[in-house]
Amino acid sequence: MRSLKKIYLLNIAFILAFQPSFSQRYMSKSSEITFYSKAPMEDIDAVNTKGTSAFDVKSGNIAFSIPIRSFAFKNKLMQEHFNENYLESEKYPKATFKGKVTGFKEEGGVQNVSAEGDLTIHGVTKKIITTGEFEFKEGKIFLKSSFPVALQDYKIKIPKIVFYNIAEVIDVNMGFEYTKAN
């Protein structure tokens, strides 16, 4: 039994010891997220510039937080419905992603990377794997990525009566610019 205790102590020490050394953080300075829904009757697009992100260059850990209310539509009524009926932004105000980026080196030029982690939209969390572009330039990091979101996966229900209005899979594009955090 004494050895069991030792193992746990060892583990706790391990957790504590390794944590600080992991961080070398970049914070997003500006961002743009757009999505596009192409359907027979109406094309719908929306832009959000209020998303934030943090990236740890040592570990590759990355996190995104996107306020749903900040998606701006041309048609404000559509925007209201998007918040009220589809994304239920009062109940689920943010979409988040936390995961890990792999396949990058801290050097210049555009690099293809992939990311794996948990995407949470509308209170539903899914494991996703996606690809993107990384560019290290003048102490900044530029990130570009696009991925499809199937509404059904996140329990976003489109009523039958307006089904023709909205695509079942939405294309999401994002661009983030990071600077080093102090």
Binding site: Q19, F22, S23, R25, T52, S53, A54, F55, D56, S59, N61, I62, A63, F64, S65, K94, T96, K98, G99, K100, G117
Partner: peptide, 11 residues
């Protein structure tokens, strides 16, 4: 935990 920390920081 590190990923959660990043997310908490954003929040």
């Amino acid at each position: 935990k590190a990923q959660d920390d990043l997310l908490d920081m954003l929040e």
